[in-house]
């Protein structure tokens, strides 16, 4: 299999370059991550993040043939050769396919990704009806891999101000949670030309989410909630 991979070592390279690899695949090399691990057998200078190797940890997000995805759940058989691998678009590159996620997580923290409830906690737990619990489906599954935000032009142009699809999906996860009492504050925080309203609903986020979630739908729901709030 032929691959062309983005290489950059801040200690030795003045600028990034592309390096070609020709790799003979073994019988168990089913996913792109398997191929990357095989390259590492001959070239251990190639750097990328990986952990669970089954699409749960969200570490190995990268740009694969022009679209963002997780290497561990991308089938080799679906890929056109040469397979071109680049780091997540718009994120500062630390080394090879490893990007700096600091800003991404700053946005995640900014939407207060935890339950806020000022009422006295009940003895056992805060119960939800099945319908209330149902509303969290499609939101709580996010693994924060950043495939979506790194595929969003609005995030590329305003990475320090636009919360981005991943952060907004999480924001809605708490806005719609029946146990959360800070809905109004959360919405007020997002009523901002940058934080929420940079989104133009092109749906690149939903196109690339490896978990099949729809950040664009969450954003749509936040805008509707804001409309209700102000009318």
């Amino acid at each position: 299999m032929r691959l062309s991979i983005y290489r950059y070592n801040p200690e030795s390279d003045a600028a990034p370059r592309m390096q070609d690899y020709d790799i003979a695949l073994g019988g168990h090399d089913k996913k792109l991550l398997d191929v990357l691990m095989r390259i590492r057998e001959t070239d251990d200078s190639l750097s990328f993040r990986r952990s669970c190797r089954e699409g749960v940890c969200g570490s190995d997000a990268m740009n694969i043939n022009g679209r963002n995805g997780l290497a561990c759940i991308t089938a080799v058989s679906d890929l056109k050769e040469p397979v071109v691998l680049r780091p997540l678009p718009g994120f500062p590159v630390i080394r090879d396919l490893i990007v700096d996620m600091t800003q991404f997580f700053t946005h995640y923290n900014s939407i207060k990704p935890y339950l806020i409830n000022d009422q006295i906690p009940p003895e056992r737990e805060r119960l939800q009806s099945p319908e209330q619990r149902e509303r969290l489906n499609g939101l709580y599954e996010c693994i924060l891999c950043a495939c979506c935000s790194a595929f969003c032009p609005s995030y590329w142009w305003n990475p320090s101000k636009f919360v981005g699809p991943a952060g907004l999906l999480q924001a809605y996860r708490f806005i719609t949670d029946s146990r959360d009492t800070a809905t109004r504050e959360r919405l007020a925080y997002l009523d901002d030309v940058y934080r929420l309203y940079r989104c133009r609903t092109i749906m690149n986020c939903t196109e690339v989410c490896p978990k099949g979630l729809s950040p664009s739908h969450a954003i749509e729901q936040i805008r509707v909630a804001l409309l209700r709030e102000s009318s």
Binding site: P16, N63, F91
Partner: peptide, 12 residues
Amino acid sequence: APKFLNLAQIRF
């Protein structure tokens, strides 16, 4: 730190 953001190499 460099950034990869070559729009011609992204599949929209």
